[in-house]
């Protein structure tokens, strides 16, 4: 027990149990559905995980700083439509430029949110509830309710979702899924080891303390929103590649799935704890549920009810179970420190 407490943090237990839950879900659904363990199931789940995960990474950073970004669905929709419209008009546009356009647009939209929250001191829920409506409204006005269609897009973009990154046995790892995993690894390493990124945690754990020790708290919040916007822009590009047909309603309501993924993944809604990796696990859990319910022919209308329940359970278990674990952990730490000779410190 003591060994456990020295080497593992309560948050890691939280993530590990989610991993177990995912394995259990796959085993249960696998026994209920014929032909579940195929590469087709894997690809279906992976391609929906990829987009949600990229947005969820940015959302994690925002939630870590005790804020929330509800505008991500509108940002994904806007960037997908705008980039699609540009590609349809200029077929010669190089892929890199297209991605950069999407990310720059997302970055700008995130920066507006971030400036209002960090420097205007308006609560994030108000800012992003407002900009969710504003960005969507701008999209509808800009597009004149026209649709970007698959045939108007260049061929490389339409082929992109089926592009393989690497093939392991029967499993094709698609490039977009690999990209999402790459981003998670990058941000996981960054938020674990980089000083600059640890500030997101410091800010969320105790904003007053962060301010007192001289951290640029406003910049931290601002940059979280900018990163969230930029990653949503990238996800907008992936959305465009995956679906091809982009209406003005594209990605409406995605913010709910993303917040669900983040919260189910163990990122504390009060800020200050949780990981990018956990958010990805949350996204995987939700995608597995969604795909499997679909395969079980349970009506799609059940999806929202289950998603809502999942969020509530995640938040509740965090508040009740995780807090108890933390209490046990800190009590033992205290004992180890106060009692000499137990080998707390070498």
């Amino acid at each position: 027990m003591r060994w456990l407490q020295r080497h593992i943090r309560p948050e890691q237990i939280r993530e590990f149990s989610l991993l177990l839950l995912i394995v259990a879900a796959v085993l249960i659904f696998g026994s209920m559905i014929d032909g579940y363990y195929t590469s087709r199931t894997f690809n279906r789940i992976a391609s929906s995980v990829a987009i949600i995960t990229v947005v969820a990474v940015g959302q994690t950073l925002v939630v870590l700083t005790r804020n929330i970004d509800l505008a991500v669905g509108s940002i994904v929709g806007c960037t997908a439509y705008f980039t699609g419209a540009q590609l349809a008009a200029h077929h010669g546009l190089p892929p890199v430029v297209a991605v950069l356009i999407a990310m720059a647009l997302g970055c700008a939209m995130g920066a507006i949110n971030g400036a209002l929250v960090a420097y205007g001191r308006v609560p994030s829920i108000i800012v992003t509830l407002g900009s969710l409506a504003i960005y969507r409204g701008i999209l509808i006005d800009y597009s004149g309710a026209r649709t970007v269609t698959t045939d108007s897009l260049p061929k490389w973009l339409i082929d992109l979702p089926r592009l393989n990154f690497i093939t392991i046995g029967d499993l094709d790892i698609r490039a977009m899924f690999a990209l999402a995993v790459g981003i998670v690894v990058l941000f996981q390493i960054g938020t674990s080891f980089l000083n600059v990124a640890r500030r997101f945690y410091a800010m969320g754990s105790n904003p007053d303390a962060a301010e007192l020790i001289g951290m640029p708290t406003r910049q931290i919040v601002f940059s979280a929103f900018v990163l969230s916007g930029t990653l949503s822009g990238l996800a907008g590009f992936m959305f465009l590649a995956r679906f091809g047909n982009i209406t003005v309603e594209a990605a409406r309501g995605m913010e709910l799935q993303v917040v669900a993924a983040v919260v189910v993944g163990g990122v504390n809604i009060f800020g200050g704890s949780g990981t990018v990796f956990g958010a990805m696990l949350g996204a995987i859990m939700i995608a597995i549920l969604e795909q499997s319910l679909f395969r079980l022919q349970i009506s799609e209308f059940w999806r929202d009810a289950i998603l809502g329940l999942l969020i509530l359970m995640a938040v509740a278990s965090d508040a009740v179970i995780l807090n108890r674990l933390r209490a046990i952990w800190s009590r033992t730490e205290l004992k180890l420190v106060t009692r000499p000779g137990t080998g707390a410190a070498p």
């Binding site: 829920i125 209308f301 009810a305 969020i311 938040v315």
Partner: peptide, 27 residues
């Protein structure tokens, strides 16, 4: 119940409600 007796933030609980109650209506 979740907000008052368990002490969860109303933002998170009612966001879950926003999704969940709509889900029940759709079912």
């Amino acid at each position: 119940f979740w907000i008052a007796y368990v002490g969860l933030p109303s933002l998170a609980v009612t966001l879950a409600g926003l999704i969940g109650y709509r889900g029940v209506a759709r079912i």
